[in-house]
């Protein structure tokens, strides 16, 4: 399947979804003008990927910032991964946060409570 590579901007995150290279990554800032327009292709890609995933998927989150409109879509991503795990593949989330950023660390903990996935909280 075709990979997705998106260069980040000051309001949209960088995205890499590459099955061949085994890279799944979201980084930068997420406060797009239209969240659905931005995240829909990402969600669609993952739904497609979930039909025939790698044996193990590590999803990297290195966001500096996301607004509440994005937080719902990020949860949607995790829910697809959760379902993928229920269907037998192994999934883990590497949630990176800066040392000063308690709010971002807390957000990672909260997501880990909302979905049944292994979260590794990693200091940037």
């Amino acid at each position: 399947m075709d990979a997705i590579y998106l260069e980040g901007t000051d309001d949209c995150p960088s995205v890499i979804l590459d099955k061949d290279k085994n890279i799944f990554k979201l980084s930068g800032k997420s406060l797009p003008e239209n969240v659905s327009a931005f995240y829909d292709p990402i969600i669609a890609w993952l739904e497609n990927y979930a039909k025939d995933p790698l044996k193990k998927t590590t999803f990297q989150i290195l966001l500096d910032y996301f607004n509440t409109a994005s937080s719902k879509l990020i949860l949607d991503i995790f829910m697809i991964l959760e379902e993928m795990q229920e269907n037998g593949s192994e999934v883990e989330i590497n949630w990176h946060y800066a040392d000063y950023d308690e709010d971002m660390k807390e957000a990672g903990i909260e997501y880990s409570e909302m979905v049944d996935l292994k979260f590794n909280l990693i200091l940037k």
Binding site: L31, N67, A69, A98, E102, D103
Partner: peptide
Amino acid sequence: ENNPIQKKVFHVMVECLQ
């Protein structure tokens, strides 16, 4: 100004204006 405070102000402004 320290980073966490900057980020909180940024966040509040984004949410209010949106």
